[in-house]
Nucleic acid binder design. Structure first.
Lengths: 186, 186
DNA sequence: TATTATAGTGAACAATCGTTCACTGTCAAG
DNA sequence: CTTGACAGTGAACGATTGTTCACTATAATA
């Protein structure tokens, strides 16, 4: 019963991105008294599932048992990152208005870990610097490459030995800078 | 100024897993009146960064537009309006309650396009199959490897020529299946 | 049977919440 | 200079919040 109610709270939190009030919980739990909710919360607090400070209730981050036991070979910094990351969107996208998603089809950046089928997040509001991965148009062809410099002028370099560096003949249009990669398995 | 305050709110939310009250925001913003906060929130609401319903303030989720392939180039501003916006969270995370984020530190999966510093989304509710990338514990060491089979028993294979396949001596514990990868540049 | 712990009801409480009001100072446009 | 928009102050408002109290119903225990 307690587990079920905890699940209902978590679900509400994921849906609304905030904790339900006692009144809302009384609807969720199907009880008529706020005091019944109050006692439930006290129990959840004793179980360590919920934290209360100054009348503000928050969900305690579920400590992944996996992380506690980690020995050499696998990351420990993951713990804090895991707890603090509220959404992958916010992690990867800094400027939602000037960013968009693009699907990768070629293998020109494969040695940089960008595979065909991946999605790249492109931001066109930030200024391209040397070393950035950019979406550029050379001679009427759109490509994704590393931006580099040679003799003072920009060139595009693939992360794949089979591709040669591109020296733009006429002009080089840069549509945006790749700020993130997202890949989905299965 | 508005952007800065929005950032402060997001930061508070990330830290406390709840929205700050107006009083708390007045401390964050370094203003003395709750009304100044109120007006700020109204502005953020008009910008679409924040949502208010029944006196409950929440952060609006980030979503960005999804374009096609890179080679296809870019749509005109008119066409751009027709594109649908998606959330990377929903794209990568199918089961939010059984998934978690892990930060990669090793280079054992580098040929699969998973680099050190990347984040992997791990789902522990789905059944591992041959060919999946899994988080596994062999002989008290946690690793991320391809799951494969040899002579009817499971083995772990790295995506890096420098690592040899692992044949678990005792038992093989699989914590979850990698269902996605997220990488952040800059 | 008597007892005790448990979960829920319903009413009340002070504290805090978000909101509104009238007002002040500042800075740029007319 | 005058005007008007804008951001902030400080005080007040009712509504809602989490909490507490006394009490009831149920079930398990001795």
């Amino acid at each position: 019963m307690l587990q079920k109610r905890y699940g209902q709270i978590v679900e509400f939190y994921r849906l609304n991105k905030r904790m339900p009030t006692y009144k809302e919980m009384s609807v969720l739990f199907n009880v008529k008294s706020k005091n019944a909710v109050f006692k439930t919360i006290v129990k959840l607090e004793h179980l360590g599932l919920v934290k209360k400070e100054e009348r503000h209730i928050t969900l305690k981050p579920i400590s992944i048992k996996l992380l506690g036991n980690i020995e050499a070979g696998f990351p420990s910094p993951a713990e804090e990152e895991l707890l603090d990351t509220i959404s992958i969107d916010r992690l990867l996208v800094k400027n939602p208005n000037t960013s968009f998603l693009l699907k990768v089809s070629g293998d020109s950046m494969i040695e940089a870990g960008i595979m065909p089928g991946d999605f790249v997040i492109v931001d066109r509001s930030i200024e391209p610097k040397e070393g950035d991965i950019v979406i550029a148009c050379v001679d009427n062809n759109w490509t994704m490459k590393y931006l580099s410099k040679e003799n003072g002028s920009y060139i595009l370099i693939a992360a794949n030995k089979n591709y040669k560096p591109i020296k733009p003949k006429s002009e080089l249009t840069i549509a945006g800078v790749v700020v993130g990669v997202a890949r989905k398995y299965r």
